[in-house]
Structures are given as structure tokens and as C-alpha cells.
Simulated scan of single mutants.
Amino acid sequence: MILPIVAYGDPVLKKKAKPITKEYPKLPELIDNMFETMYGANGLGLAAPQIGLSIRMFLVDTSPFANDKEFTEEEQAVFKDFKKVFINAEILESTGEEWVFNEGCLSIPGITEDVFRESTITIKYQDENFKEYTETYDGIIARVIQHEYDHIEGILFTDKLSSLKKRILKGRLANISKGKCDADYRMRFPSVSKKR
């Protein structure tokens, strides 16, 4: 089932999310719904706060990058098979040189900006069966994970922009929270009153 994606301005996007246990109700169904929602919106990742749940879970599928000629064949092969669920994730270390990449977000439709992030991360997390892993990623995959991880920490990519950029975007971001934006997927807007 495709769920509405929460738009910029909703308080859930600014909260630090809570850990969950394997007893979390209907978790397999929730994960399926999140993947379906992400694919329906042509996303590479989706975090639970983006569907209104303040829990430490996000998922990533980088397969859309698998046909992008900007990347080497080796990188494309890695992207093709990278599909994961991250539960109760904790980034243990971020290292390497900061590099810039143009990022967007399903909760902030129509806005993309250059964001600097470190190139390599080590992350501890549990999968959908609550098996624990500690893994190191770099490049694009590390970036996608960092973007989604920020969501469970209550951080948006716009928080990482310069104060000048934030001022320039202020009006557009306010419009998104009021539903004045174009998105070809279902959204829930914080400043749009519900019909009684």
C-alpha cells in the first residue's frame, strides 16, 4: 500500500526517532509499504519519519543508479544489488574528504541543492530480521545512507545548507508545507487543514 509522504514543516521530521524491537506491530507489512511508497515516488531511500512514524528505520535501494553512465561499470554493478533495510542504525564513524553532491528529498519536492558529506561511514544496524551488522560504505552508497540516517536524527538536507541558501529557500519551503508544490505522489502537508 502506498502511504502519503510527510512534507517539509511537519514536526515529525525534526524529531530524533525512537528505537524499535522485533515486537513492533506489523513490521513486515510496514517495510513492504515503505518500499512500495518509495518506488511509487521514484526515491532511492525512505525513512519512517517521512511517513509520519518517529521510529529508527529507513530503507535504501540504489538500483536506479545502475544505469547511470556518470558512474563506472563497477559502481553500477554495486548499485544494482544494493537494497537494504536499516533498523536502529547508528553511524559509528564518518571519515574521508567531504565531497559535494546534488541532493533532493521526497519530503521537499522540487528542491535540490549541493550538500557536502564525508565520503566513508561505518554504521551499526539491524536488518528486518533484527540480525546485527557493522559495515563500512563509501561514495554514493555512504551518501544515500547518511541522507536517510539524518531523517531518523531529525535532520533534513536543507539543515546542512549555508544560512544564505536557507534564506533564499525560505519562501519555497513554506509553500511546500502549505501544499503549494508539485509532486506526482501522495503527500501529507502540515499546514493544510483537514476537512471536518
Rank of each mutant, 00 (worst) to 15 (best):
V6M: 01
G9P: 02
P11Q: 08
K15P: 01
A17L: 12
K18F: 11
K18E: 15
K18Q: 14
I20Y: 14
E23H: 09
Y24H: 12
P28G: 01
M34V: 02
F35K: 08
T37L: 01
M38G: 11
N42Q: 13
N42L: 12
Q50N: 00
Q50C: 00
M57A: 06
F58A: 08
L59H: 00
V60I: 02
D61T: 01
D61M: 00
T62A: 12
S63K: 09
S63E: 14
F65M: 09
N67P: 00
F71Y: 15
E74H: 05
F79N: 06
K84G: 05
A89Y: 02
I91V: 10
W99H: 08
N102H: 10
N102C: 12
N102V: 12
C105G: 12
C105Q: 13
L106Y: 03
L106M: 13
P109D: 10
P109S: 11
T112W: 10
T112G: 12
D114W: 04
V115F: 01
F116V: 08
S119Y: 02
I123D: 06
Q126C: 13
G139C: 11
A142F: 00
V144R: 01
Q146K: 04
H147P: 08
H147E: 09
D150I: 01
H151M: 02
E153F: 00
I155W: 00
K160W: 13
L161F: 09
K170R: 15
N175H: 01
N175W: 01
S177D: 02
K178G: 08
G179L: 05
D184Q: 15
Y185G: 07
Y185Q: 03
P190A: 10
V192D: 11
V192E: 13
